[in-house]
């Protein structure tokens, strides 16, 4: 039964930022912990670890999700994009550049999640104005209160995409 015998690690394959990665994981390993502790991709942040702050947001098969509430074994075969995978050939992703242009962070801890979430938002194509950006970014908290600049940065990236 659980707690007395430890299940065996389960082999899974992920494509992380375009690279194939084979892992053996215990079933309770979250995607967040697999990325940070096994693949050493520490750009994705553990904030609340309960799906309330959005700092752990990554793209799974192109859709933004909370990696802290995702079991890695359930995503066998999936394509994962983290903040480390957004820049291409040394050029920042338009959202990364826009966050710099608009000074859209203070401490920066929420920023990888904000940018991955905004990348998901742009791909969804549902936000048309600042109110809609605010609503569809409400799953990403910024305790420094950088929201006006975050919205401005996303508006810039949206207008150029």
């Amino acid at each position: 039964m659980a707690d007395t015998t430890i299940p065996k690690p389960i082999p899974i394959n992920l494509v992380v930022n375009g690279e194939k990665r084979a892992l053996e994981l215990l079933p309770w390993t979250t995607l967040l912990d697999a990325l940070r502790d096994r693949l050493e991709l520490t750009g994705t942040k553990k904030g609340c670890d309960h799906g309330q702050c959005g700092a752990c947001t990554v793209l799974v098969d192109g859709r933004r999700v909370n990696s802290c509430l995702t079991l890695a074994v359930m995503k066998d075969g999936a394509e994962i994009t983290t903040i480390e995978g957004l820049a291409k050939d040394g050029t920042l992703h338009p959202l990364q550049q826009a966050f710099i242009d608009h000074d859209a962070f203070q401490c920066g801890y929420c920023t990888p999640g904000q940018i991955c979430s905004a990348a998901g938002l742009l791909a969804e194509g549902r936000a048309k104005d600042a109110d809609e950006i605010r609503e569809l970014m409400s799953g990403n908290l910024c305790r420094c209160g950088g929201y006006p600049n975050i919205v401005a940065a996303i508006e810039q990236a949206m207008s150029r995409s």
């Binding site: 799906g51 959005g54 947001t57 859709r63 933004r64 999700v65 909370n66 509430l69 995702t70 979430s117 998901g120 938002l121 969804e124 569809l136 970014m137 409400s138 799953g139 990403n140």
Partner: peptide, 9 residues
């Protein structure tokens, strides 16, 4: 309800 991320999941 919820957030865009949670609604995706």
């Amino acid at each position: 309800g919820a957030s865009a991320q949670l609604r995706n999941m």
